[in-house]
Each structure stands twice: as C-alpha cells, then as structure tokens.
Design a binder for these strands. Structure first.
Lengths: 238, 238
DNA sequence: ACCTGAACACCGTTCAAGT
DNA sequence: ACCTGAACACCGTTCAAGT
C-alpha cells in the first residue's frame, strides 16, 4: 500500500537534475560528505543507479551541482552601504550557508575547476571591492588575502572536542600541560575564568571568525585609503 | 633474476611503519591524493594488502602518519629574532613543505583529530607568539586568525589554468568579459601590462601569499603594541 | 603464534542485452 | 530509441583456514 503511494509520488515527480541535487544535498546534510555515493543516492530516490547518469555525467558533476546549490543560498550583496559593511555581511552569509551544510567546504575544496556559479560569485565579490574604490591591483591582492574566507570558511584546526565527557576533557587538558606548555595556557580561556566548574571546552568560533575577518578588512581599508590619498583626493577613484 | 634481487632487497629491508609511510608519501607525491589506497600501496611494496595492517590499524591511521611525515619536514623556529620574523619564516617553511607534497593540505583537512605531531607543531607556534609578548587572549585570537596559514596553505581558488594553450586562454578571458565584468578587469594583470604577447595567465602565488601573511602579521603587531602600551611599558609582559 | 587467501560489502562506470 | 541488469575493475576490512 505504502509502496503504491510511493510509486505514484515518483511518477508525479519524475527524476530531474534538480531533484537529484536536492536529494544529494539532503543526504549529505544528514550523513556527511562520505555518505554520498551514486548507488546510495539512487536508492534514496527509489531508482536504479544508472538512471542518475541521464541527468549528471558522473559523480564529479554531481558534486559540482551540490556545491552550486549551497553557493546559491548565499545572500546577494546588500546595497547602499560602504564596501566594508557589504563585504562583511556577504562573507558572514557565506559562512552561515557553509555551516548549514558542513560537508560543503571539504567538497568545495576537493573540486578542481570552479563552476560558473562559483565564478559568478567571485566576480560579484570583486565588484564590491572595485565599487568601494579599490584599484584593480589592490582588489587582486585583496581577493587572494580573503582566500579562505571568501567562501565562508577558515578551517578550524580542532574539531571542537565537545564529544568528550567534561570531566574527562578537563583531565586530558591538565595531562597535556607537561607536553604542550603553550596550549596548556589556554586552559583558563577554555574553562571560563570564574565560572567555577563550567568546563566549556571549545572556542567561540563565531567570535574568532569575525575577529580575523575584521583584522583583514581593517588592514585592507588602510591600504585602500593610502592608495586613494596617493592618487589625488577622490576615495572612489580606481 | 630481477625478481630474486627484489626479493633479497625486501628481505634485507623488512616491512616497517617507517617504510610504509615513506612509500605512501612517495606514491601520493607522484600520483596525487586519490592514488593512495591500501591495495595499491601494498602492491608498490611488493606485499600482500593485509601485511600493512600489522603496522597501521587502518587507512585513517595511514593518512595521519603521512601528514606527520610532511609536518616533520617543517623547519624549527629560528632563534634570536623578533616574533614576527620568526613566525613569518616558520610559516613560509610550512608552505614550502606543503607545496612539495601537494596532496598533503587536502589530506590534512580531511582528518578529524590532529595527531600529536600536529599538536606539538601548533604548541610551538603558540610559543612564538607568547615569547613575542602576546597576552594569552591575543595569542588565542591570533592562532585563529592564522588558521589557514598556520600550516602553510591558503587554498587557491583557481587551479592556475596553466594547462590551457595560451592562445585559447586569451580567447577564453575575452569571452568571459561580458559575463564576468570584474574578473575581466584582471586581464591586464594576468597578461602583464606591456610585455606584448607574453600571456602568463596565473598569479604570482608566492607574492600573494606573502602579501596576505604580512597584512595579518602587521595587524597583529598593531594589536600587540597597543596591548603592551595599555598594560605598562614592558613589551614582553603577558 | 603468525601470516594470508578468500570473502564480504561496498564503490563508479561500461556495455550489451532487453524492451 | 530508451532503459537497465549484469559485469568490470576497483575499494577497505574481516575472518577463518592454513602454516
């Protein structure tokens, strides 16, 4: 009975590239990057594996399509604001998109050639710099500087060891002190200075992300301003 | 005959974790990240696949070991220099190591928990900041800021399309101009302003890396200096 | 006790045979 | 002409059977 309904639903909504990509993103969202395989995806769609190959040439094209879905979720640049506010908001939006799809950053990086969607996104980023009065040279360097941030991620080196039971975590930290004296100095930061036994290991990654982002944006603004004052007075001249 | 010699060599140099890791690194160096598999590696060593499992628990442990080999190639911090010069040199050394082993950065990122070798490396980085007079808080933020650079890589978004024939590349660039107006503004940068037909598409990634690195280091130095002047006069106080 | 062949449960993709 | 089952050439890893 359930089977009949499923079959009817399938017939009503035929297999399309769209539907395949949506299913793939959903699968990766819940199962992680390594859970996506052509066979598994086909099964999820109630379809024979080979049916997918009518809509995507191969697995690489599937992954590209999945990345495009995520990039499309990034908000458009806000308008009527200075370049710094615009860039800041855009990048925080990109970060939110990639946090919603934790598999996306590693998939994005594994890709060789960027897709047209990704290229268009980068182009619009460049536009924000140029409209903000950057010279082409400085915009070029700025794009490289933003590098890892431009698509919303700076890789966090630690996985946030929040999985460990808290007592055990505290013990591990103190044991580490002998071997890694400098890391150990972060214990008060990790614990919270006076919150008693509130062992909240892990950093405020949102704060850290913005700290680094602002450091870079402020540095770029300094360079832009000195560029502008060196070539006359108009801050919007390229 | 050759077989006999090979067999003798194998007998003289028995299978060890060391030898497995060295072979795995060599295999990845020439074949890329995706060419490393337990079966392929075993074949390369003239050994049955299961023999590897005596020395590494599984493929993840193999990958961790390979990363450790690369990290071990990073030069120790230079001595008798200010923090900025020390940090700069260390990070450029890390970058060189990762450029020597192009597969390493993506493998490094795919790993979950960092290995003790990686942790020790990070600890020594923290030591450079602390000895340079950073407060623990600022050192903490600084480590996050360095993020993608700390291990020598900021992901380059484009693969350096140096593979394309140059005439074709130039044509592609001009076609792009309509769709991606801002990217197109980089054409003179990519071509070289007055070098005639010298179509050297691609950026000076070494220059760009140092540009970004210095932007960040200068920003951190400004913060450290204002921290120091706010808490007395001693620039080495934590 | 050690080593290893065969087997298991997967892959992405090709291809020829079926409708 | 379209669709798809079986097959191919791979995976990482388990396990029991051999020495």
């Amino acid at each position: 009975m359930a089977t009949k309904i499923e079959e009817a639903a399938r017939a009503r909504e035929p297999l399309t590239r769209e539907r395949i990509l949506r299913a793939a993103v959903a699968l990766a969202d819940e199962g992680g990057a390594e859970s996506i395989s052509m066979r598994r995806l086909a099964q999820e769609l109630g379809v024979v594996p080979m049916a997918l190959y009518k809509h995507v040439a191969n697995k690489d094209e599937l992954l590209d399509g999945m990345v495009d879905v995520v990039v499309a979720e990034i908000d458009a640049p806000i308008e009527d604001a200075d370049w710094k506010a615009t860039m800041r908001e855009r990048i925080l939006s990109a970060r939110r998109a990639l946090l919603r799809h934790p598999w996306a950053s590693s998939v994005l990086e594994s890709r060789g050639e960027p897709t047209p969607t990704v290229i268009a996104y980068i182009d619009s980023m460049m536009g924000v710099f140029l409209e903000g009065g950057f010279s082409i040279d400085l915009m070029h360097h700025a794009m490289h500087v933003m590098g890892s941030r431009i698509l919303g991620f700076s890789q966090e080196l630690f996985d946030d060891a929040a999985s460990m039971p808290q007592e055990e975590a505290a013990e591990v930290w103190t044991q580490l002190a002998d071997v890694y004296p400098n890391i150990a100095k972060l214990i008060p930061v990790a614990i919270g200075t006076h919150d008693g036994p509130a062992v909240g290991v892990g950093c405020d990654t949102q704060f850290e992300f913005e700290f680094g982002l602002d450091l870079v944006l402020d540095g770029l603004e300094r360079l832009r301003a000195s560029e502008a004052s060196a070539s006359g007075e108009d801050p919007a001249a390229s």
